[in-house]
Structure formats: C-alpha cells, structure tokens
C-alpha cells in the first residue's frame, strides 16, 4: 500500500507541469524512502530524473516497493481539478490498476476523489551517475528561463561558455547574434538572487534551444537552478524540491 499526502496540491501540479510536455507517460517507482521517476523524452535527447523524498510529504507510507505507470497528460488533467492550497493525497494498493487521488479543501468541508487508470510501461533505466563536473553555475531560475527564451529567438542552439569568472550564453543565427554574460554575485539580503560559478576546467558546450524550453517549465519549482557542465557530456539542470529534486540531463550538440 502506498499513501502520500502533500501539504499543498501545488507541488505535484508544478512537478507534472514541468514534465508532461517532454514525457507523455512514465513509471513512478515508490519505495519506503519516497517516489522516483526516470524518463526520457520522445526524441531521446533529454532525460528527466525526479526524486520526491519521503520528507516532502506531510504523511507518507509505502509498505512494499511498487511501480505505478502514469500518463502525465491524464494526471495533469485530474490534478488541475484541485485547488493549489488543497491537501493532495495519492494512494494505491500493492497490485493496483488505478491511482487514487484525493483533494481536501482546507477551509470548506469538501473532499474530491478521483481514480486515474494506470498504464503498463516498459522502459529501460539508464545509469546516470555519479558524474564528474567541470563547471557548476547556480543562478536564479527565473533569470535562466529568461536567458533561454531570449536566446531562442535567434537560434536553435544555445552555446554556454564558462570561464573562471563568468558564464557566457551565446546564440548565433540567421537574423543575428546575441550574448548574455553573468558573473558571480553574493546578495546577502536576497540570497535567492545570488549567482555562483565554480570551475575546474573551462567549458564550451552547445544545447538545443527546444529542449531548454522544456527544461525551464520547471522554473516555478525552485527559485534557483544549478547547472552542472562537463566537457562532451550531458548538461545537468537541477531544480531542488523541499526534499528531493527534479533534474534534466540534456545531451549536448556537436559540430558535424
């Protein structure tokens, strides 16, 4: 039996919204420690890794490991019916063919209950970690989203060049070029506005703008995003949850 109660429905809403446009369905692997998902987008360029640790939940129990195959579009529709501030409880029996979803309004005496039909999903798991990292950038997630949107008007690719004291985001396209430089900054009054760059080795990598557009749909999950870059390796874009994370591993592009 799995039972997990979120303090606010908004958290699961944000997680599903961040994933559903690149992955149509995925397995939720539930253990006593929490819920994890690994899924690859249809073009197999972007890998999503989600961990919702037990401590994220107001209440959590999982007596036996179970795998729940979930259509994210369908889950999104059902979750959309609840208010952001509702308690949201998901539950499933050990051999369940459906996921039970309950919203509880915190003010009104109102409980809404839904069942989502589960899917049988046959998916390979990839071994992603741990990876070496040459450069790590942490910046406000909204700033990163704006950079990706702004650069996308120019080109299908975004080049990220990291040196000791700066990160350069550059796009070169038919209509022209653009570049945005960010430097480390410590903001004591507003720590969420700080930018950090740590570097073992300079980095010059290019990523598909289309996939970055999918990644930044996670912006509302966390005020900060951490980008880990390694030469000739997938970039890791991490949004922290209250306890856990949503990570995107994006394969870089190369000159032909």
């Amino acid at each position: 039996m799995l039972e997990g109660k979120f303090e606010e429905a908004s958290l699961l809403k944000k997680i599903v919204e961040a994933m559903k446009d690149c992955v149509s369905s995925c397995n939720f692997n539930c253990t006593e420690n929490g819920i994890s998902v690994q899924a690859v987008d249809n073009s197999r360029v972007l890998l999503i890794s989600l961990l919702i640790e037990k401590d994220t939940f107001e209440e959590y129990r999982c007596d036996r490991n179970i795998t729940l195959g979930v259509g994210l579009g369908s889950l999104s529709k059902i979750i959309g019916n609840g208010a952001n501030s509702d308690y949201l409880t998901i539950s499933a029996d050990d051999d369940a063919d459906k996921l039970n979803i309950i919203f509880e309004d915190k003010v009104k005496d109102k409980i809404s209950e839904y069942n989502l039909k589960l899917l049988d999903i046959d998916a390979d798991l990839l071994d992603v970690g741990p990876m070496d990292t040459d450069a790590t950038i942490t910046l406000p997630s909204a700033d990163f989203a704006k950079i990706c949107k702004d650069m996308k008007v120019l080109s299908e690719s975004l080049q990220i060049i990291v040196t000791k004291d700066s990160a350069l985001f550059q796009s070169v396209g038919d209509i022209g070029t653009g570049n945005i430089v960010i430097r480390p900054k410590t903001d004591i009054d507003h720590p969420e506005e700080s930018v950090t760059i740590s570097l073992d080795k300079p980095i010059d990598l290019s990523f598909g703008s289309k996939y970055l557009s999918d990644i930044i749909k996670a912006t509302s999950l966390s005020q900060k995003v951490t980008i880990k870059l390694t030469d000739q390796s997938p970039g890791v874009f991490e949004y922290k949850l209250p306890s856990g994370y949503l990570r995107f591993y994006l394969a870089p592009k190369f000159d032909e």
Binding site: R44, V45, L47, L125, L126, S206, P234, A251, K253
Partner: peptide
C-alpha cells in the same frame, strides 16, 4: 550541429 541522443552517454542499467 549534430544532436546525439542521451543513450550515447549513459548505459542501460
């Protein structure tokens, strides 16, 4: 530019 897939970097478990 060429776009490799993620399977080019990670092995199956």
């Amino acid at each position: 530019m060429a776009q490799p897939t993620i399977s080019n970097f990670f092995k199956r478990k």
